[in-house]
Design a protein around this nucleic acid. Structure first.
Ligand code: MN
Ligand code: MN
Ligand code: MN
Ligand code: MN
Lengths: 265, 265
DNA sequence: CTATTTTATTTGGCTATCCTAATTTTTCTT
DNA sequence: AAGAAAAATTAGGATAGCCAAATAAAATAG
């Protein structure tokens, strides 16, 4: 069987009786080694992942923010939301955003798992720097098979965190909590370890590299200017001023070693 | 810039002046590090690759064979052929098949390069067996970026052959000729080395593994039955009977070591 | 050379996904 | 609380890529 195209596929019916089963509307069902599984299009997977991320950030996902994040128009988001709701991936409260259902959450976690394992794999094998990883992973996450991702997982020794310090969701659908707290909320004077950084913007990651900040770096907040002003911190022998915006994208663990993982920078 | 969706994209115009440029009809133009490049959909890439393969096998690509290979209907092939011809990737002689243009050939070689490098990469890093490789590579070939494929190429030490013994097209568009001759045409009594096997069918590859045949195996044709009958050959200390069909999918180099590469079985 | 079979093309139709423009609902201002 | 602004939805439309059925051309068999 040739690998399914992204858009449509006709397969022997997964249901009773004979005949074929064409499932072009919303991803499609595919016969894998563990029985039938719904295969979703890259577009749908990305929508669900974006909703998942926005729910963590904002408690709910709004049409506007989804449109910005996915780089599509709001009309397209509304249309897709209705599809997703009709298939049971989200609950839609018109004019008030969406929430993932448990079913949707599983899809999101599975995709995030693939994304983060791919990032770690590319980082380990090809020594890609952390600013290079994300864009490739964003595409590859939709292309790797379940069996390949399991091979990668074993090859990496069942890792728990990706190169940006984010927890890798487990196959059973559980995830470790995000480590630490945002740097802009870290107590003044306390010593901490950089535990996680946002992977969304390569520019930001190159900026951190220039500041010699990486996962595992030990820092101390010296001073926080008011009105969302810059944050002064000690790192190694240097003192660094970092904007509020950037600081909010860095999470810091209190104490010395947040969790025994190294930087993959 | 988020990575382009497979189907459509609107980007700042690559041409003079202002405004945007929507190119949904046939892949789209993308701004890479070396200027603008046309990005093709996975579907189009697969059509062009299939035409390339059929031209090698049959001197031309017919609608029927394309439909079989791509698992679509003939009507779909005709439709796509017209698109490809209008974009200058193929020359279409109605009712008599298609040929790739030079432009189409470059697309095919680039895709084959990606496919084979991915197979070798997965084989080296994750120790996938040669029957497992092809299906994953068939999808990933459309998802890896140019920069990632170059990293893989360097990581692998600028390899010339993939795990099935097929030559990896070079970046400049040149390819080494297919090594050896088909086993069903190899002279009787002569000693030879298995140089290449077809990667299309995992069943076939598992069959070869069971026979302990791999790239680099040394064999001697003992006898060839008439009327496309089975072929008897010596391999190691054993004598093997292999059907004509299977034999035609194996290419053999005369002499001992075809080219110093090892099996990645 | 004609009849039949095979191969190829044309026609008409479908869904997925996106867009723009118009409309509706909610939120913000004063 | 009314008006303005922002956010969300609806309406209408486009292309890619697929299919079935009808038609046409080429190849084959007698
Ligand atoms: Mn990432
Ligand atoms: Mn993605
Ligand atoms: Mn292959
Ligand atoms: Mn492919």
């Amino acid at each position: 069987m040739p690998f399914p195209r992204i858009l449509t596929l006709t397969l022997p019916s997964p249901y009773e009786g004979e005949g074929f089963h064409t499932r072009a509307i919303f991803g499609f069902d595919v016969l894998g080694t563990n029985g039938w599984k719904v295969m979703l299009t890259a577009s749908i997977e990305d929508y669900i992942k974006a909703i998942y991320a926005l729910e963590i950030e904002d408690r709910k996902a709004s049409t506007k923010k989804l449109a910005q994040r996915l780089d599509v128009r709001m009309a397209s988001v509304t249309g897709m939301i209705k599809h997703l709701a009709s298939e049971g991936y989200v609950k839609h409260m018109p004019y008030r955003g969406v929430h993932l259902t448990e079913r949707g959450r599983r899809v999101a976690l599975d995709l995030v798992r693939r994304h983060r394992l791919i990032e770690l794999f590319l980082s380990r094998t090809l020594a890609l720097t952390w600013d290079e990883l994300h864009a490739d992973a964003e595409v590859l996450e939709h292309a790797v098979s379940d069996s390949l991702i399991e091979r990668i997982y074993e090859y990496l020794g069942c890792p728990e965190f990706d190169p940006h310090g984010s927890p890798i969701p487990r196959k059973d659908g559980s995830v470790a909590p995000q480590p630490g707290v945002p740097l802009d909320q870290f107590p003044i004077g306390a010593k901490g370890t950089i535990a996680e950084v946002s992977d969304q913007d390569p520019e930001f990651l190159r900026y951190l590299t220039k500041l010699k900040l990486a996962i595992g770096s030990i820092i101390r907040v010296r001073e926080r200017a008011p009105f969302n002003g810059p944050i002064l911190l000690d790192s190694g022998s240097e003192t660094i001023a970092i904007g509020h915006d950037a600081a909010s994208r860095i999470r810091v663990h209190s104490g010395r070693a947040g969790g025994r993982r190294k930087s993959h920078n």
